[in-house]
Design a protein around this nucleic acid. Structure first.
Lengths: 198, 198
DNA sequence: GTCTATACACCGATAGAC
DNA sequence: GTCTATCGGTGTATAGAC
Protein backbone atom coordinates (compact mmCIF):
# COMPACT_ATOMS: atom_id res chain seq x y z
CA UNK A 1 0.00 0.00 0.00
CA UNK A 2 1.28 3.36 -0.92
CA UNK A 3 0.45 6.47 1.04
CA UNK A 4 -2.72 6.20 3.07
CA UNK A 5 -1.30 3.79 5.62
CA UNK A 6 1.58 6.16 6.20
CA UNK A 7 -0.85 8.98 6.87
CA UNK A 8 -2.85 6.81 9.23
CA UNK A 9 0.34 5.91 11.00
CA UNK A 10 1.24 9.56 11.36
CA UNK A 11 -2.20 10.23 12.77
CA UNK A 12 -1.93 7.38 15.25
CA UNK A 13 1.48 8.61 16.37
CA UNK A 14 0.26 12.17 16.81
CA UNK A 15 -2.65 10.91 18.90
CA UNK A 16 -0.32 8.79 21.01
CA UNK A 17 2.06 11.72 21.42
CA UNK A 18 -0.74 13.93 22.69
CA UNK A 19 -1.70 11.30 25.25
CA UNK A 20 1.88 10.98 26.43
CA UNK A 21 2.39 14.75 26.66
CA UNK A 22 -0.90 15.10 28.53
CA UNK A 23 -0.07 12.40 31.03
CA UNK A 24 3.62 12.95 31.61
CA UNK A 25 4.65 16.26 30.04
CA UNK A 26 6.56 17.07 26.90
CA UNK A 27 9.91 16.30 28.52
CA UNK A 28 8.83 12.67 28.88
CA UNK A 29 7.41 12.46 25.38
CA UNK A 30 10.37 10.64 23.89
CA UNK A 31 10.03 8.78 20.64
CA UNK A 32 10.27 5.54 22.60
CA UNK A 33 7.45 6.53 24.95
CA UNK A 34 5.31 7.61 22.01
CA UNK A 35 5.74 4.41 19.98
CA UNK A 36 5.07 2.36 23.12
CA UNK A 37 1.83 4.29 23.61
CA UNK A 38 0.93 3.72 19.95
CA UNK A 39 1.92 0.03 20.12
CA UNK A 40 4.51 0.36 17.38
CA UNK A 41 8.17 -0.36 17.02
CA UNK A 42 10.77 2.34 17.10
CA UNK A 43 11.64 1.89 13.45
CA UNK A 44 8.04 2.41 12.40
CA UNK A 45 8.24 5.88 13.85
CA UNK A 46 11.04 6.90 11.55
CA UNK A 47 9.23 5.39 8.65
CA UNK A 48 6.35 7.81 9.22
CA UNK A 49 8.34 10.81 10.48
CA UNK A 50 11.82 11.99 9.59
CA UNK A 51 12.45 13.13 13.15
CA UNK A 52 10.88 13.67 16.54
CA UNK A 53 10.78 17.41 15.88
CA UNK A 54 8.69 16.80 12.79
CA UNK A 55 6.11 14.96 14.88
CA UNK A 56 6.04 17.67 17.54
CA UNK A 57 5.43 20.27 14.85
CA UNK A 58 2.55 18.27 13.47
CA UNK A 59 1.23 17.70 16.97
CA UNK A 60 1.13 21.41 17.67
CA UNK A 61 -0.61 22.33 14.44
CA UNK A 62 -3.19 19.54 14.37
CA UNK A 63 -4.12 19.70 18.02
CA UNK A 64 -5.10 23.34 17.76
CA UNK A 65 -7.69 22.70 15.09
CA UNK A 66 -9.15 19.78 16.99
CA UNK A 67 -9.89 21.78 20.10
CA UNK A 68 -11.59 24.68 18.40
CA UNK A 69 -15.07 23.41 19.09
CA UNK A 70 -14.60 23.00 22.81
CA UNK A 71 -12.83 26.20 23.75
CA UNK A 72 -15.50 28.72 22.95
CA UNK A 73 -18.70 27.01 21.89
CA UNK A 74 -22.20 28.18 21.13
CA UNK A 75 -23.27 31.05 23.28
CA UNK A 76 -26.48 31.08 25.20
CA UNK A 77 -28.66 33.90 23.95
CA UNK A 78 -29.99 34.87 27.40
CA UNK A 79 -28.99 37.98 29.28
CA UNK A 80 -26.84 40.98 28.56
CA UNK A 81 -23.42 40.97 26.94
CA UNK A 82 -21.49 40.36 30.15
CA UNK A 83 -23.67 37.37 30.99
CA UNK A 84 -23.31 35.88 27.54
CA UNK A 85 -19.53 36.18 27.72
CA UNK A 86 -19.39 34.83 31.26
CA UNK A 87 -21.44 31.81 30.22
CA UNK A 88 -18.91 31.15 27.45
CA UNK A 89 -15.99 31.45 29.84
CA UNK A 90 -17.66 29.17 32.37
CA UNK A 91 -18.25 26.66 29.65
CA UNK A 92 -14.57 26.73 28.83
CA UNK A 93 -13.80 26.34 32.51
CA UNK A 94 -15.91 23.20 32.71
CA UNK A 95 -14.00 21.89 29.70
CA UNK A 96 -10.76 22.63 31.56
CA UNK A 97 -11.99 20.89 34.68
CA UNK A 98 -13.03 17.83 32.73
CA UNK A 99 -9.61 17.39 31.12
CA UNK A 100 -6.95 19.46 32.90
CA UNK A 101 -4.05 17.49 31.49
CA UNK A 102 -5.05 18.38 27.97
CA UNK A 103 -4.91 22.11 28.63
CA UNK A 104 -1.68 21.65 30.52
CA UNK A 105 -0.30 19.87 27.46
CA UNK A 106 -1.39 22.76 25.24
CA UNK A 107 0.45 25.23 27.47
CA UNK A 108 3.57 23.11 27.42
CA UNK A 109 3.47 22.80 23.66
CA UNK A 110 3.14 26.56 23.34
CA UNK A 111 6.13 27.20 25.55
CA UNK A 112 8.10 24.52 23.79
CA UNK A 113 7.41 26.27 20.50
CA UNK A 114 8.50 29.62 21.94
CA UNK A 115 11.95 28.24 22.63
CA UNK A 116 13.06 27.78 19.04
CA UNK A 117 12.95 30.43 16.33
CA UNK A 118 11.69 27.94 13.75
CA UNK A 119 8.77 26.89 15.93
CA UNK A 120 7.85 30.28 17.35
CA UNK A 121 5.58 30.94 14.32
CA UNK A 122 3.62 27.83 15.27
CA UNK A 123 2.77 29.38 18.62
CA UNK A 124 1.86 32.65 16.94
CA UNK A 125 -0.39 30.80 14.53
CA UNK A 126 -1.92 28.86 17.40
CA UNK A 127 -2.82 32.04 19.26
CA UNK A 128 -4.02 33.68 16.09
CA UNK A 129 -6.47 30.79 15.75
CA UNK A 130 -7.61 31.20 19.32
CA UNK A 131 -8.07 34.93 18.77
CA UNK A 132 -9.92 34.34 15.51
CA UNK A 133 -12.27 31.93 17.20
CA UNK A 134 -12.80 34.28 20.12
CA UNK A 135 -13.45 37.12 17.71
CA UNK A 136 -16.24 35.25 15.97
CA UNK A 137 -17.80 34.38 19.32
CA UNK A 138 -17.56 37.97 20.46
CA UNK A 139 -19.22 39.23 17.33
CA UNK A 140 -22.04 36.75 17.76
CA UNK A 141 -22.33 37.69 21.42
CA UNK A 142 -22.57 41.37 20.58
CA UNK A 143 -25.21 40.58 18.01
CA UNK A 144 -27.24 38.57 20.51
CA UNK A 145 -27.01 41.22 23.20
CA UNK A 146 -27.54 44.15 20.86
CA UNK A 147 -24.21 45.85 21.34
CA UNK A 148 -21.33 47.18 19.26
CA UNK A 149 -17.64 46.89 19.99
CA UNK A 150 -15.97 50.22 20.57
CA UNK A 151 -12.55 48.61 20.17
CA UNK A 152 -11.92 46.40 17.12
CA UNK A 153 -13.30 42.93 17.89
CA UNK A 154 -9.94 41.38 17.01
CA UNK A 155 -8.33 43.29 19.83
CA UNK A 156 -11.08 42.40 22.27
CA UNK A 157 -10.53 38.79 21.29
CA UNK A 158 -6.88 39.01 22.34
CA UNK A 159 -7.96 40.29 25.72
CA UNK A 160 -10.33 37.38 26.08
CA UNK A 161 -7.64 34.88 25.13
CA UNK A 162 -5.28 36.40 27.69
CA UNK A 163 -7.90 36.11 30.42
CA UNK A 164 -8.61 32.53 29.45
CA UNK A 165 -4.92 31.69 29.63
CA UNK A 166 -4.56 33.31 33.02
CA UNK A 167 -7.57 31.46 34.33
CA UNK A 168 -6.16 28.19 33.02
CA UNK A 169 -2.68 28.62 34.43
CA UNK A 170 -3.70 29.75 37.88
CA UNK A 171 -6.36 27.07 38.18
CA UNK A 172 -3.88 24.38 37.13
CA UNK A 173 -1.73 25.53 40.03
CA UNK A 174 -4.21 26.01 42.85
CA UNK A 175 -7.32 24.14 41.61
CA UNK A 176 -9.42 26.83 43.26
CA UNK A 177 -12.80 26.64 41.50
CA UNK A 178 -14.25 29.68 43.26
CA UNK A 179 -11.29 31.84 42.33
CA UNK A 180 -11.54 30.69 38.72
CA UNK A 181 -15.23 31.53 38.55
CA UNK A 182 -14.48 34.94 40.00
CA UNK A 183 -11.91 35.47 37.28
CA UNK A 184 -14.47 34.45 34.69
CA UNK A 185 -16.99 36.87 36.12
CA UNK A 186 -14.55 39.77 36.35
CA UNK A 187 -13.14 39.11 32.90
CA UNK A 188 -16.60 38.95 31.34
CA UNK A 189 -17.50 42.22 33.04
CA UNK A 190 -14.31 43.91 31.82
CA UNK A 191 -14.63 42.65 28.26
CA UNK A 192 -18.29 43.60 28.03
CA UNK A 193 -17.43 47.18 28.92
CA UNK A 194 -15.46 47.45 25.69
CA UNK A 195 -18.81 47.53 23.86
CA UNK A 196 -21.65 50.06 23.66
CA UNK A 197 -25.26 48.99 24.00
CA UNK A 198 -27.24 49.98 20.94
CA UNK B 1 36.59 25.37 54.94
CA UNK B 2 33.49 23.78 56.23
CA UNK B 3 30.03 25.00 55.23
CA UNK B 4 29.96 28.55 53.96
CA UNK B 5 31.83 27.78 50.73
CA UNK B 6 29.31 25.03 50.02
CA UNK B 7 26.46 27.48 50.47
CA UNK B 8 28.14 30.00 48.22
CA UNK B 9 28.64 27.28 45.66
CA UNK B 10 24.98 26.40 45.83
CA UNK B 11 24.10 30.04 45.33
CA UNK B 12 26.42 30.36 42.35
CA UNK B 13 24.92 27.23 40.80
CA UNK B 14 21.36 28.44 41.32
CA UNK B 15 22.24 31.74 39.69
CA UNK B 16 23.86 29.96 36.78
CA UNK B 17 20.87 27.65 36.44
CA UNK B 18 18.50 30.59 36.23
CA UNK B 19 20.60 32.15 33.48
CA UNK B 20 20.63 28.89 31.53
CA UNK B 21 16.87 28.35 31.94
CA UNK B 22 16.21 31.94 30.89
CA UNK B 23 18.36 31.73 27.81
CA UNK B 24 17.66 28.22 26.59
CA UNK B 25 14.70 26.79 28.52
CA UNK B 26 14.50 24.24 31.29
CA UNK B 27 14.90 21.33 28.89
CA UNK B 28 18.40 22.57 28.05
CA UNK B 29 19.29 23.26 31.68
CA UNK B 30 21.33 20.08 32.11
CA UNK B 31 23.84 19.75 34.91
CA UNK B 32 26.59 20.03 32.31
CA UNK B 33 25.19 23.29 30.91
CA UNK B 34 24.76 24.70 34.40
CA UNK B 35 28.26 23.95 35.62
CA UNK B 36 29.67 25.31 32.37
CA UNK B 37 27.75 28.54 32.96
CA UNK B 38 29.03 28.65 36.55
CA UNK B 39 32.58 27.83 35.49
CA UNK B 40 32.75 24.70 37.59
CA UNK B 41 33.47 21.07 37.03
CA UNK B 42 30.76 18.46 36.93
CA UNK B 43 31.91 16.86 40.16
CA UNK B 44 31.68 20.16 42.01
CA UNK B 45 28.00 20.19 41.24
CA UNK B 46 27.39 16.93 43.06
CA UNK B 47 29.48 18.12 45.94
CA UNK B 48 27.01 20.98 46.48
CA UNK B 49 23.79 19.24 45.41
CA UNK B 50 22.74 15.63 45.74
CA UNK B 51 20.93 15.73 42.41
CA UNK B 52 19.76 17.97 39.62
CA UNK B 53 16.23 17.86 41.00
CA UNK B 54 17.47 19.25 44.29
CA UNK B 55 18.92 22.25 42.48
CA UNK B 56 15.75 22.83 40.48
CA UNK B 57 13.72 22.80 43.69
CA UNK B 58 16.01 25.36 45.23
CA UNK B 59 15.91 27.41 42.04
CA UNK B 60 12.13 27.58 42.12
CA UNK B 61 11.88 28.60 45.75
CA UNK B 62 14.69 31.16 45.79
CA UNK B 63 13.77 32.81 42.53
CA UNK B 64 10.27 33.61 43.71
CA UNK B 65 11.49 35.60 46.69
CA UNK B 66 13.96 37.50 44.57
CA UNK B 67 11.40 38.80 42.12
CA UNK B 68 8.90 40.05 44.67
CA UNK B 69 10.06 43.65 44.43
CA UNK B 70 9.72 43.91 40.69
CA UNK B 71 6.38 42.29 40.04
CA UNK B 72 4.08 44.67 41.82
CA UNK B 73 5.99 47.67 43.13
CA UNK B 74 4.99 50.93 44.77
CA UNK B 75 1.77 52.31 43.46
CA UNK B 76 1.41 55.84 42.26
CA UNK B 77 -1.11 57.64 44.44
CA UNK B 78 -2.71 59.58 41.58
CA UNK B 79 -6.16 58.88 40.21
CA UNK B 80 -8.96 56.53 41.07
CA UNK B 81 -8.65 52.86 41.95
CA UNK B 82 -8.72 51.61 38.37
CA UNK B 83 -5.96 54.01 37.40
CA UNK B 84 -3.79 53.03 40.35
CA UNK B 85 -4.15 49.34 39.49
CA UNK B 86 -3.54 49.96 35.81
CA UNK B 87 -0.36 51.85 36.63
CA UNK B 88 0.82 48.86 38.64
CA UNK B 89 0.04 46.45 35.83
CA UNK B 90 1.78 48.65 33.28
CA UNK B 91 4.79 48.77 35.53
CA UNK B 92 4.85 45.00 35.58
CA UNK B 93 4.49 45.00 31.82
CA UNK B 94 7.57 47.19 31.44
CA UNK B 95 9.41 44.77 33.67
CA UNK B 96 8.29 41.94 31.39
CA UNK B 97 9.41 43.82 28.29
CA UNK B 98 12.79 44.57 29.80
CA UNK B 99 13.51 40.90 30.57
CA UNK B 100 11.11 38.57 28.74
CA UNK B 101 13.32 35.53 29.14
CA UNK B 102 13.14 35.78 32.89
CA UNK B 103 9.35 35.66 32.96
CA UNK B 104 9.38 32.88 30.40
CA UNK B 105 11.72 30.99 32.72
CA UNK B 106 9.34 31.51 35.63
CA UNK B 107 6.46 30.08 33.61
CA UNK B 108 8.53 27.08 32.59
CA UNK B 109 9.58 26.43 36.17
CA UNK B 110 5.96 26.56 37.29
CA UNK B 111 4.86 24.07 34.69
CA UNK B 112 7.82 21.87 35.46
CA UNK B 113 6.77 21.82 39.11
CA UNK B 114 3.19 20.95 38.15
CA UNK B 115 4.39 17.74 36.53
CA UNK B 116 5.52 15.95 39.66
CA UNK B 117 3.45 15.44 42.81
CA UNK B 118 6.42 16.25 45.06
CA UNK B 119 7.05 19.56 43.32
CA UNK B 120 3.46 20.66 42.81
CA UNK B 121 3.43 22.27 46.28
CA UNK B 122 6.32 24.47 45.16
CA UNK B 123 4.13 25.93 42.44
CA UNK B 124 1.27 26.39 44.88
CA UNK B 125 3.58 28.18 47.27
CA UNK B 126 4.92 30.29 44.43
CA UNK B 127 1.45 31.45 43.45
CA UNK B 128 0.47 31.95 47.07
CA UNK B 129 3.38 34.37 47.34
CA UNK B 130 2.30 36.17 44.21
CA UNK B 131 -1.24 36.41 45.56
CA UNK B 132 -0.01 37.60 48.95
CA UNK B 133 2.05 40.29 47.31
CA UNK B 134 -0.82 41.32 45.08
CA UNK B 135 -3.13 41.40 48.08
CA UNK B 136 -0.93 43.85 49.92
CA UNK B 137 -0.73 46.06 46.85
CA UNK B 138 -4.48 45.93 46.41
CA UNK B 139 -5.08 46.92 50.01
CA UNK B 140 -2.69 49.83 49.67
CA UNK B 141 -4.35 50.79 46.39
CA UNK B 142 -7.80 50.76 47.97
CA UNK B 143 -6.47 52.88 50.80
CA UNK B 144 -5.00 55.40 48.40
CA UNK B 145 -8.11 55.62 46.28
CA UNK B 146 -10.52 55.61 49.22
CA UNK B 147 -12.33 52.37 48.43
CA UNK B 148 -13.25 49.10 50.13
CA UNK B 149 -13.14 45.63 48.63
CA UNK B 150 -16.53 43.99 48.41
CA UNK B 151 -14.90 40.62 47.79
CA UNK B 152 -12.11 39.47 50.15
CA UNK B 153 -8.89 41.08 49.01
CA UNK B 154 -7.20 37.68 48.88
CA UNK B 155 -9.65 36.59 46.22
CA UNK B 156 -9.24 39.79 44.26
CA UNK B 157 -5.51 39.18 44.39
CA UNK B 158 -5.96 35.81 42.71
CA UNK B 159 -7.87 37.48 39.91
CA UNK B 160 -5.08 39.98 39.47
CA UNK B 161 -2.47 37.23 39.36
CA UNK B 162 -4.48 35.38 36.73
CA UNK B 163 -4.72 38.49 34.58
CA UNK B 164 -1.00 39.10 34.94
CA UNK B 165 -0.24 35.56 33.85
CA UNK B 166 -2.52 35.81 30.86
CA UNK B 167 -0.94 39.08 29.83
CA UNK B 168 2.51 37.53 30.17
CA UNK B 169 1.78 34.40 28.21
CA UNK B 170 -0.01 36.04 25.30
CA UNK B 171 2.60 38.79 25.02
CA UNK B 172 5.42 36.24 25.01
CA UNK B 173 3.69 34.65 22.04
CA UNK B 174 2.65 37.63 19.92
CA UNK B 175 4.78 40.49 21.36
CA UNK B 176 1.83 42.79 20.74
CA UNK B 177 2.40 45.76 23.06
CA UNK B 178 -0.89 47.44 22.24
CA UNK B 179 -2.88 44.29 22.97
CA UNK B 180 -1.03 43.85 26.27
CA UNK B 181 -1.79 47.40 27.32
CA UNK B 182 -5.42 46.86 26.45
CA UNK B 183 -5.43 43.79 28.67
CA UNK B 184 -3.89 45.83 31.46
CA UNK B 185 -6.53 48.50 31.06
CA UNK B 186 -9.44 46.07 30.93
CA UNK B 187 -8.11 44.02 33.84
CA UNK B 188 -7.62 47.10 35.99
CA UNK B 189 -11.15 48.19 35.17
CA UNK B 190 -12.56 44.77 36.05
CA UNK B 191 -10.64 44.44 39.29
CA UNK B 192 -11.51 47.95 40.42
CA UNK B 193 -15.20 47.16 40.09
CA UNK B 194 -14.85 44.61 42.85
CA UNK B 195 -14.52 47.52 45.28
CA UNK B 196 -16.93 50.18 46.52
CA UNK B 197 -15.92 53.82 46.70
CA UNK B 198 -16.26 55.17 50.21
C1' DG C 1 37.73 19.67 48.48
C1' DT C 2 38.48 19.65 43.63
C1' DC C 3 39.64 17.72 39.55
C1' DT C 4 39.69 13.94 35.40
C1' DA C 5 37.98 9.83 33.93
C1' DT C 6 34.38 6.87 33.62
C1' DA C 7 30.06 4.01 34.69
C1' DC C 8 25.58 3.26 33.27
C1' DA C 9 20.98 4.49 31.40
C1' DC C 10 18.53 6.43 27.86
C1' DC C 11 18.13 9.40 23.91
C1' DG C 12 17.23 9.88 18.53
C1' DA C 13 18.21 7.63 14.55
C1' DT C 14 19.61 3.81 11.34
C1' DA C 15 21.29 -0.79 9.32
C1' DG C 16 20.03 -4.91 7.78
C1' DA C 17 17.32 -9.36 8.23
C1' DC C 18 12.90 -10.82 6.96
C1' DG D 1 7.04 -2.25 4.97
C1' DT D 2 8.11 -3.92 9.46
C1' DC D 3 10.82 -5.78 12.73
C1' DT D 4 15.31 -6.55 16.01
C1' DA D 5 19.68 -5.08 16.95
C1' DT D 6 22.74 -1.57 17.32
C1' DC D 7 25.29 2.98 16.59
C1' DG D 8 26.83 7.38 18.31
C1' DG D 9 25.78 10.77 21.48
C1' DT D 10 24.42 12.78 25.81
C1' DG D 11 22.21 12.60 30.26
C1' DT D 12 23.00 12.08 35.61
C1' DA D 13 25.93 10.50 38.82
C1' DT D 14 30.23 8.61 40.88
C1' DA D 15 35.11 6.62 41.61
C1' DG D 16 39.49 7.63 42.48
C1' DA D 17 43.84 10.49 41.75
C1' DC D 18 45.62 14.59 43.62
Amino acid sequence: MSRIPALERRRALVDAALRVVSRHGIAQATTRAIVAEAGMSLASFHYAFASRDELIDELITTVVGREQQAVLPELVPDGDLAEVIEAGLLRYFEHLRSDPEHEQAMLELTQYALRSPERHPLAVQQYARYAELAERSLERAAGLAGADWRVPAAQVARVLVAFTDGLTLTWLVDRDDDAARLVAHAAADAVSRLADVR
